[in-house]
Simulated assay, not measured.
Amino acid sequence: MSYHFSMEIEKGYEFNEQKKYKGGLKYYMLPWLNNNVGILETTIKNSETPEPLDWMKKSAKEYINLRIENGESLNDLEYK
């Protein structure tokens, strides 16, 4: 109910638009986090984000490179 109410007010809508790359308000308000974009997917796809996530993307790249060094392909990485 709070998710639907939040989408009806201006600040909720603005926040949803700002965080849309992650899944918007659903990412933050729905506990099951279905189909939300994580930092690994954002990094692998080299997606643009509206806020600076350089420190997080750097860590994700290091993690991805370690997995690749251990013989995994990008298709093997789970990012959901």
Rank of each mutant, 00 (worst) to 15 (best):
M1G: 04
M1K: 15
S2G: 06
S2K: 08
Y3D: 13
H4V: 15
F5V: 01
S6E: 11
S6L: 07
E8G: 15
E8N: 06
I9E: 10
I9F: 10
I9A: 02
E10C: 12
E10R: 12
E10T: 07
E10I: 09
K11P: 04
K11V: 10
K11C: 10
G12W: 02
G12K: 02
Y13K: 12
Y13N: 07
F15V: 00
F15P: 15
F15G: 01
E17W: 11
E17F: 05
Q18N: 06
Q18E: 10
Q18M: 10
K19C: 15
K19P: 00
K19T: 10
Y21I: 13
K22W: 03
K22T: 01
K22C: 05
K22S: 02
G23S: 10
G23K: 01
G23W: 09
G24N: 12
G24E: 09
G24L: 10
K26Y: 15
K26R: 13
K26M: 15
Y27V: 15
M29T: 03
W32T: 12
W32Q: 15
L33C: 09
N34M: 12
N34Y: 08
N34D: 14
N35A: 04
N35P: 15
N36A: 08
N36C: 10
N36Q: 14
G38D: 05
I39W: 10
L40F: 09
L40D: 01
E41L: 04
E41K: 04
E41G: 05
I44M: 01
I44W: 00
I44T: 00
K45A: 06
K45E: 12
K45T: 05
N46T: 08
S47D: 09
E48W: 07
T49L: 08
T49K: 03
E51C: 09
L53H: 03
D54G: 03
D54N: 09
D54I: 02
D54A: 02
W55M: 15
K57F: 11
K57N: 05
K58H: 05
K58D: 11
K58Q: 13
S59P: 02
A60S: 04
K61I: 07
E62Y: 11
E62Q: 06
I64C: 04
L66W: 14
L66A: 06
R67N: 14
E69Q: 06
E69D: 13
N70A: 04
N70E: 14
N70G: 14
E72V: 02
E72T: 06
N75G: 12
N75A: 14
N75R: 12
L77H: 01
L77S: 02
L77D: 02
E78F: 06
Y79F: 13
K80G: 14
K80A: 14
